[in-house]
Design a protein around this nucleic acid. Structure first.
Lengths: 206, 206, 206, 206
DNA sequence: AATGAATGAGCATTCATTCAT
DNA sequence: AATGAATGAATGCTCATTCAT
């Protein structure tokens, strides 16, 4: 009964099934953002979504798959937004600034998603006890950032430095900018992002 | 006949009790570092320590007190080490560099303690559901870093910038340096620290 | 589409859920009667009912709710039976006799229920350490008995006496009649009840 | 190493040991009266007494023996007081009245002891789950009361009635008089006792 | 496609008891 | 004679998961 499409690892899902999955993912994001990972039981998520607990088990192989779906969807949304903003920008300096500002932009508009993402990245573990995500998962981000830094070094905009260290620093600074904003809602996120872009530019400048 | 130390609200503990508390705290740190907060049950901690579950209840009022003890001891150790390294250093630039290097030094020698500390800060919650510590706990760190940055601005070593943003960035960069090193044990932590110090110096420089 | 009954704050329960609740309540009554309050753990009650421990938690918010349900159901049954027997009886003397005999009747048919009720009333405590029910719960009984005694005083059947003392005495005598019968199963409960009714009548007579 | 005195079932105890036992029994009575049987853990009793938990285990074979000692001592005190008051009284009617009033007198002066006694009688169980005391334990009381009632019947003061039923009723009425007073501290215990004596006299009168 | 019911393992905590000192 | 330390069983409760309907 499997369709050919499944060969790519994606199951074919009916419209209604897709809607349910989205609804449950949205509920999960909200519960994670409000109450944190430890309090995000399936019972609580189901209650928040207004469905029975069983429906989650029906649509997801287990809690882990649900959490992974949250990560994938949330992560994809950030990447999509940032890449769209970076489209057409050519100088490394501008790409750097655009990356920071675009990320902040998206954070500002989707705080719950990013709080939820943070909860999962820090807490979700595999059966063997190790973190399911973790710094290793940032590899993709590091590579993308490194390509910007290397571009700048090649064009002569940037001095010579260790691009991996700079990428880790950049990524950390953006993540914590958001965490700080979450903890201090009155904080001016956009101003922080502009200031941070300036810091990174100076750190890279010849 | 009470010693002066007792007047500060600290119960006097027998040598043997102190030893047990230390042993249990050490066990807790290791379990937290290996398996994360959610898996750090009293049963697991006790098993790791080679004692019965009841021993923990006997020596600590509850799990929360145990976790708070871990935070206090671990945090105190970091602060003590970094402050010791900073003693006698006078220029803001040198203080900045020293702070980064000293933090890296301590991380390298006590990776489990810092992993455990992070687990608790992010996960431990009060009865009302709020985080027991949380990003706000970083306030103390931010203040300390800001005082370095302000010193540099006053002495003219540093340009004008938002010291809070710089402190958040600094703190994040140091934390993730450690996380990256934990995930990639072959990574050269000290080189990373020196590179990071350079990045921060350039970001601050006039 | 909600029935009128639901408007009174009672959740609608499915047939199967009601059956389970009844089964668990019945099991609780039996365990309380046999082994007493302190031994009536959820584990023991579940085992007695032949279900898993979780079932109880699923159907009742907690142990307290279960115990309160036992009290409500059991108490309602006694009151219903005694009131039914008293219906239509008019003279105070006859009401007095009927009350004693009807209580004994019900005791004889539902000894476990009454034992269980007693266990809960005397032992169940609120979070603050006070008795959840306690002697004060008898107030309702005392009031009902006093109304009989006052009626007799008004009609001239009874002499003047302190109706509260008489009600407390009456209630105690009925309770211990049951306790004595429980401890001495060969004892003739109905004869005891008739004798007790005679004692109370003489005590009240002009 | 057993002394001859032990043959009577009583161990010889040093003065100091006796003092400790008394101190612990007194603490137990107070804790039982304040917090009830379920809350009367050895830890709480020891804390109340200002001694370590181990000392209780040292002086008593176990919690049960401690509770039994409380019952014995408390019970002996009541009996002693009531018998003293009854000494020299000759008519059954007077003995009856004296018994009720003397019990109330003692209750009034030792409320904690009697609250504690009640807690134990109702809650303490043997290993097989049955009540350690219970109505059966009242047998001694019933016999004593019956002897009064029979005396009255023989002297012609009292009518013919079932002395056992009367004894159970009498005992119950006295016990609940105290329970009512415990629950309603403002209640006039002595007035209640006089009223109850009147009730019993009328119930017995020819 | 969805549900309500049930399970059983795991949780933190309490407690009577034991024992070396 | 007394203690502090330790034990391990038991308690009420939570939760992800399973399953018949």
């Amino acid at each position: 009964m499997r369709s050919e499409n499944e060969s790519s690892g994606q199951k074919t899902r009916s419209f209604i099934e897709e809607a349910r999955r989205s609804q449950i993912v949205a509920s999960t994001v909200e519960v994670l953002a409000e109450a944190g990972f430890a309090q995000a039981s399936l019972a609580r998520i189901a209650k928040h979504a207004g469905v029975s607990k069983g429906v989650i088990s029906y649509h997801f192989a287990g809690k882990d798959e649900l959490m992974e779906e949250v990560v994938e969807r949330t992560y994809a949304a950030v990447v999509k937004h940032v890449l769209a903003r970076m489209e057409g920008v050519e100088s490394a300096t501008e790409l750097l600034r655009t990356h920071v500002l675009a990320a902040a932009e998206h954070m500002r508009d989707h705080p719950a998603q990013l709080k939820a993402l943070g909860e999962i990245l820090v807490n979700l573990r595999t059966a063997d006890g190790g973190l399911r995500y973790g710094v290793r998962t940032n590899e993709e981000v590091y590579r993308a950032l490194e390509s910007i830094y290397r571009l700048g070094q090649e064009t002569g905009e940037f001095r010579t430095f260790d691009t991996r260290v700079m990428a880790v620093t950049h990524s950390a600074a953006v993540d914590d900018m958001f965490a700080y904003w979450t903890a201090h809602p009155g904080h001016d996120l956009d101003a922080h992002a502009r200031e941070l872009a300036g810091i990174l530019e100076r750190a890279c400048a010849r």
